[in-house]
Amino acid sequence: MKSIPLRILAITLLKELGLASLLLLGVSFVVFVILYAAPGDPFSVLLEGQLPSEQALAGIRAAMGAQQSWYGQYFSWLHNVLGGNFGTSLHSGLPVAGELVKVSLNTLYLTLGSMLVTLCIAVPIALYSSMRGHAVAISWPLTMLGYVFSALPVFWLGYIAIYVSVHGFDFFPLSSSGASDGNGWLYTLVPVLVLGLGSGTISEVIRYLREEMSRVMAEDYIRTERAKGASVWRHAFKEGLLLPVSEIIAAKIPFILGGAVIVEQIFNWPGMGRMAWQAAQDRDFPVIMGIALVAAIFVRVGSLIQRIVYTAVNPQGARD
């Protein structure tokens, strides 16, 4: 493979995009149906603080123009979204699209950062323990450590992190608290670390990479090359590292987004998870729908990137 065949890439891309839009449609529909089945009128939440009378509720519905059947509501939502209009939050009145952009960027930073943390820990451990001839005495405790972090409840880990940074290192790891001295960004590393360590993915990444790496190393091709004394690094890197890493990242996005719900609450992170939690409590339909869509887009983009990497590395496989 001298150059990446563009045609195949383009076809992959188109296929994935088509699939992605179908999936987004499915996601939005499922979320809508669940929301519709939930008790609690979203409009009654607006009268929180007093009990809604039937009359007041009817008045609100009329004012907000929501008197359609459920599928009518879904299709009008869909129609608006296709026109780029995600509606406005029932609760704050702010346009959902603008809010989503803000919070999703924050969450993107948190999740990407934590994935990086996960990989920085998991990849060396996996590589080390998949190589032959290495002492179990070293790789074993490392693997164990990775497993231990994955088995801790993430919010508890967050509390420990805050307790330790306050009492041990004399700083308060909330993004908003240290902005004045220019080192504010440093504090954002703590939640990133906590999510990276505690999202429960390290053990799986280690395991998966180790499997893949040892499988690749055991391939006939590598054995022959090795016997000839040639370098097998290139092939092993692509097949044993690049592919599995891109696969695991793509597959773990929904998982890490879930962890972000918790970490964002603890570290006061103005992200999507916190917004989702609040919106679920407020029955803020447009916000929940928007977040579900964006989360699904994250997942699909991850999978798209993974497909592209795969096609680039292994054009034959992609053609099949």
Binding site: Q265, F267, N268
Partner: peptide, 11 residues
């Protein structure tokens, strides 16, 4: 705004 009361006290 805080989303966790324990952290609020810590703050």
């Amino acid at each position: 705004p805080f989303a966790d009361q324990n952290i609020l006290t810590q703050a």
